[in-house]
Design a protein around this nucleic acid. Structure first.
Lengths: 221, 221
DNA sequence: ATCAATCTGTTGGAATTCCAACAAAAGGAG
DNA sequence: CTCCTTTTGTTGGAATTCCAACAGATTGAT
């Protein structure tokens, strides 16, 4: 168990909860560890879940198979991160995704109702835990909404400008860095990399922006 | 205040909380009502908020102005619904959106930390409240993720098929209804309505699906 | 039943993207 | 430095979407 604690210290869910209290909290939460072999299914599409998982070691993959059997991977979950929390907290009737271990993995499971219920010992860290869970889900929400706003634009040019202008606003000025390289940015905006590169060049030639590597500058018209 | 209670009974945040307890809970939460005239700003872009709002009457609009001043409307919030909860719970430093009243509106404000903190009177309904808030944010999260999954597809045909095949799976069969008309579906998928209509016809002619009004049936290949 | 408004499907041309292939530039390892 | 890999920019043709305009079908009101 010692090894697990190290990871949990850096888990957003346990932010600002100290090592000693963490141990108490975990037992109070009735957290249980399970080990999955590579390829094993952690959650089955269609089932109803009331708990979520934290990857302690290894990696799991969240994916969705459509009506025709085409698989699309929604997320890779690395140690320290959660999965299934939106479906469990959202009280979704049947899981629209599956989760499998892509490597031998140790998973910590926590029942959702334990989060919302103040524990019998009325431990002070439970409140922090609730805040952390709310913050995690809410931040994800904000990020998703923002991404949807960018990708809702019809052309690559508009997608780029809405993304870059948001970054400029966030940075509080015309010059800023982005956390993506070209391929990653194209994947994020759901466009073709080469077409995006061409569009960037056109915008530069038109005097709309300047860029060097992942540093950009928007020029006022 | 009497009138407000009627609306709050149907607010997801207060689900399964009875009228009498609701009143106690509201004072325990330190909820405060404010009135905004049409056109008045409720939240300013750039500010930091630690509370969220519930529309009691009227309507507010959430929008975003980009670097060049182009405005895009993210949501219309009608009576009974929340706004700002993701930014407040997510502890977002500066608000990336603004909120204005589009009609004279009564707004109920609640401080976020009051949600996570069990109240001094240790009222039993506080736990329900936390669950409700978590459920609301989580459900939104699931819906956003799903939409992103559909709209991430490159062509209208693929977007349609991923959306329809998801609906088919959810309905547990090939035949199902969708909650959109053509224009709404096109808006949801971020595509042109007429092009989408054309694509639907093509899919029908190719024997992939059948449809009548908002009733669809996917045919196995 | 009639009329108006809305919804849906169709079409053609202009604009844009995708895709594949290639070239130039940048970075890392030895 | 050289070699190899990764990243980025460029280009042309095929495919797709967008846009605008129009016509038929449906719906609702009077």
């Amino acid at each position: 168990m010692e090894k697990n604690f190290e990871i949990l210290k850096f888990t957003p869910l346990f932010r600002e909860i100290e090592g000693a209290e963490l141990e108490a909290l975990l037992s109070c939460l009735g957290a249980k560890v399970a080990i999955y072999k590579k390829g094993e299914t952690v959650f089955f599409c269609g089932e109803h879940i009331e708990r979520f998982g934290i990857v302690l070691s290894g990696q799991v993959q969240v994916f969705q198979d459509d009506y025709y059997g085409n698989r699309s991977i929604l997320a890779h979950i690395d140690p320290g991160n959660l999965f299934g929390e939106s479906f469990a907290n959202g009280e979704i009737k049947t899981l629209p995704v599956s989760v499998i271990a892509t490597a031998e993995s140790e998973i910590l499971f926590i029942e959702c109702y334990k989060i919302a219920s103040p524990c019998s010992k009325a431990c002070v860290f439970h409140r922090r835990l609730i805040q952390n869970m709310l913050r995690i889900v809410s931040m994800k929400n904000v990020a998703l909404t923002q991404k949807l706003e960018f990708t809702s634009k019809r052309t690559t040019k508009e997608k780029l400008l809405s993304y870059l202008s948001f970054q400029a606003q966030k940075a509080g000025g015309g010059s800023f860095s982005i956390p993506f390289n070209r391929q990653e940015l194209a994947d994020y905006l759901f466009v073709d990399r080469s077409a995006m590169s061409a569009e960037l060049s056109k915008l530069r030639d038109d005097g709309v922006l300047k860029f060097d590597k992942n540093r950009f500058e928007l020029l006022h018209s």
